[in-house]
Amino acid sequence: MARSRPTDPVDLLGPVQGEVSWFCCGAAWGPCGTVGKGACGTCNSGSLQHAWPNTSDACWAITRPDSCGVSLSRRTCGFSHRTTALCGGASVVTTIADCGPQTDLFCGERSCCGATCASNRLIDLTPAAYSRIASLSSGLRPCEISA
């Protein structure tokens, strides 16, 4: 059986744990009012969508999860991921609609619920998607991501 190289994207080896937050996109109010429809041109706060740090070379150059020691596979607009909240176990399946989060700006950050923790920002969900697995007022949660 072929062994994986150390640089293999961790999400290809199985579910990966990290932090999940939420962001607004599309038609919106307040500070979100000018954010636009995201890198894929389809992003909408009311849809079950997410941002992924490796949608293109240009996206990767901004988010740089590798600077936090995390390699993630290239996934493009429309690809589906399942995000499972480690607090409570609720999950949601969403499609890629934007590039993000900017993992490198929060390197090493860890969020916990009780003794369950995960490090590094790997995915952002729309409010519609995040609110399926946690309260929007929680802002940031540990999660598990699978393809």
Partner: peptide
């Protein structure tokens, strides 16, 4: 508490689609 509502089964909705059980606006 708001956390009480989560983790319960919600009807399946196509990934990427608008969630009819969610609303935003003013």
């Amino acid at each position: 508490g708001p956390e009480a509502a989560f983790g319960q089964a919600a009807p399946d909705i196509e990934p990427g689609a608008v969630d009819p059980n969610f609303a935003e606006g003013r």
